[in-house]
Nucleic acid binder design. Structure first.
Lengths: 189, 189
DNA sequence: CCAAGAGGAAACCGATCGGTGTACAAGCTT
DNA sequence: AAGCTTGTACACCGATCGGTTTCCTCTTGG
């Protein structure tokens, strides 16, 4: 009932999974998940092999959404430097919203310690896609070492997400300032 | 049986808790914890009010150990810049060890989403102590904005820990290079 | 109008969760 | 030796875990 009510059971499950796994962690029970989705456990286990697969699928869908938006934004107006900074503006913006708890992919990787877990594989792939996007923008911007720059940006990105999500930091310009320093030092116009 | 066998039940419990909560996450059961510590559940609940308190106490002890080492290292040989870089050398070194899973305090904060959880309070205090240490070194090193620098260093520190712990990054100089850039830009000699 | 499948409600499975209660065996101190 | 604390062993509690099964009610195509 927290999500769309007219969608297919599969969509409703993924919606609920996205929200509950993020808010309450991967230890949320199948019972609560199905109840929130308005779907019977029986249906869930017909659509997915296990709870773990539901989690993996929900992360996969989230990652696809991000990838689509990033791909669409590649030829947006602005310089590569502006596009990189825009990402961190968005991070700072969402980080102050009420339910913010950091990057969902990183959270999943931390919670399920197993790097071979299906959801871990999906999450890692999503993070790598983002790093690739940073590297591409670095190349376009004339970075001396685009790969190094991309790894540095991911460091800041994940650090900011983790610290803001854990209520250790409020950002408010911190990542912008830091990223600017790194872009300057890296030779990005 | 994995830890010292001649210590007090309390110490054995904290030893086991430190290891198991880090390796398997906060969802490790009381049964497994006590068995690993060689302590009966009855004793555990006489020494601690709840499993959550055991977790908080184990983090507290770990934080005290770190604080002692940092306090001892403040008047070590070397410049503030060297002392800051030394911390990140250590991070890069332990990050390649087999059982490494990132910063235990950050992991606890991510897993227990509740910022009011007793263990969360302990973990956050530990992180703040570290940020203070960075700021002090920044002041000693002549940083233009010591507080900003400390926050940036924590961003890199936590980002590196999270990413290396999640097997997303291998570091190998990445943090040293990044921190050097930030120290240069921040005016630390 | 009726058959067939989809999907929901809920009982049920064994296992485990955090936490207690009880009984008993050591080591102290006096 | 008596009495006390300390700690263990273990059964037990209700709740919940992930997952399965049964039953029944809808919708929909023919």
């Amino acid at each position: 009932m927290a999500t769309t009510d007219k969608a297919s059971p599969r969509e409703r499950l993924l919606d609920a999974a996205t929200e509950l796994f993020y808010r309450d962690g991967v230890s949320i029970g199948v019972e609560a998940l199905c109840k929130s989705a308005g779907v019977s456990k029986r249906s869930m286990y017909q659509l997915f092999d296990s709870k773990d697969e539901v989690l993996a699928a929900s992360l996969e869908r989230r990652a696809s959404g991000y990838a689509a938006r990033i791909a669409a934004g590649v030829d947006d107006a602005g310089t590569p430097r502006e596009r990189i900074l825009y990402i961190f503006e968005q991070v700072e913006k969402v980080s102050v919203e009420p339910g913010f708890m950091g990057c969902p992919f990183l959270a999943a990787l931390v919670e399920l310690k197993d790097p071979e877990h299906p959801a871990s594989v999906v999450a890692r792939a999503a993070k790598e896609r983002m790093q690739d996007a940073f590297r591409v923008q670095g190349e376009l911007g004339g970075a001396r070492e685009p790969e190094l720059l991309a790894r540095q940006l991911m460091l800041v990105f994940d650090g900011a997400n983790a610290r803001a999500g854990a209520k250790l930091e409020t950002l408010d310009g911190l990542t912008l300032e830091t990223v600017t320093t790194l872009l300057d030092a890296g030779g990005v116009a």
